[in-house]
Simulated assay, not measured.
Amino acid sequence: MNIYDFSVKTAGGKSVPLSRYEGQILLVVNTASKCGFTPQYEELERLYQSYKDQGLQILAFPCNQFHGQEPGSDDSIQSFCSLTYGVTFPVMAKIDVNGPNASGLYRYLTSHTDFKGFDHSHPLSGRLEEILEKEAPDYKKTGDIKWNFTKFLIGRDGEIRSRFEPTAPIHVIKEEIESLLKS
């Protein structure tokens, strides 16, 4: 089993098999429009524009599970991403990434990767840890998504290569993408 065995829904409700992206490098990210990490849309769009012609595809999955930071409808999310950040990569339908209603894709991603901690050089790292320690004291022991803008890098073969927490520096993600593009 790999990522190509799943289908996802577009913001318009159409089912899309991830096998349509076979042979491309995918960066899968759960997003939110009212989060301290929301400006990462801009960084993600720059990555997409830099590497899309070499085979990178970014798939964003809005999620409202982290302090209600994605309350809008699929239509309003699309407008926000386009108008505020000029996003041109696919922003899919809003989903759950954790719990009993988590999408099959995210159940797969989180069951095959571990949480490796936050990058403490990021200014929001301490605040995230504070929130999570209150809400889920055992959060470090599970593969669940901890917050918005967690990213998964998928190789051309559909296998998970890396997991990046929201505090991961964009240059680290960029380096791993470049390495996969060369192989």
Rank of each mutant, 00 (worst) to 15 (best):
L105H: 07
P71Q: 06
R163H: 08
P90T: 10
F80Y: 12
H171F: 02
D157F: 08
I170G: 05
A102Y: 09
D144Q: 11
G55S: 08
E165Y: 13
I160R: 01
F80L: 13
L83P: 00
P100D: 12
E175N: 14
D114E: 14
F61W: 07
P123A: 07
P123E: 10
S162I: 00
W147E: 13
S82D: 06
K141W: 11
R156L: 10
K146F: 11
G68S: 00
T110Y: 09
I58Q: 12
V91G: 06
I77G: 06
C81G: 09
G143T: 05
R156F: 06
I170Y: 02
H122T: 09
D74A: 13
F152A: 07
D114F: 11
Y106V: 04
G99L: 08
F149Q: 11
H120M: 15
E159R: 12
H171E: 14
E129K: 14
H122V: 09
E165W: 05
V172G: 07
D114G: 10
S103P: 02
E133G: 04
S111Q: 11
M92V: 10
R163Y: 06
F152S: 05
L105I: 01
I77Q: 09
N148P: 10
T150D: 08
N98K: 12
A93K: 11
G86Y: 13
S125A: 15
A102W: 06
Q57L: 04
E70Q: 00
M92F: 05
E70N: 02
R163E: 07
S162V: 03
L105P: 01
C63E: 01
Y108G: 01
T84S: 12
Q65E: 15
A60D: 13
I77D: 02
S73E: 03
L132T: 12
D74I: 10
D119M: 02
I170S: 11
E130L: 06
Y139S: 07
H112I: 02
S125Y: 07
D119C: 09
R163V: 09
H67L: 14
I160T: 10
E176T: 02
V172L: 14
K134W: 05
D96R: 04
T167H: 05
I170T: 15
F61Y: 12
F152M: 08
I131T: 11
R161I: 15
G86N: 14
L124G: 01
H122Q: 07
F115D: 12
E130M: 03
D75I: 01
N148L: 09
F149H: 11
R163W: 04
V172C: 02
P123R: 03
E176P: 01
D138H: 14
G143I: 04
Y139D: 13
A136M: 15
K94A: 00
E175C: 09
F61K: 00
G68D: 11
I58W: 08
T113R: 03
E165N: 11
R107A: 05
L132W: 02
T84H: 13
F149G: 02
L153M: 04
I160A: 05
K141A: 15
Y108K: 00
E176I: 08
P62V: 06
F115R: 11
R107M: 02
L105K: 05
L56K: 00
L109V: 02
E133D: 15
V87D: 09
Q65H: 08
P62N: 06
H122D: 15
E130T: 09
Q69F: 01
L132F: 10
F89D: 07
L128T: 01
D75L: 06
S103Y: 01
P62G: 08
A102P: 00
I154E: 04
F80T: 08
F164Q: 08
D96H: 03
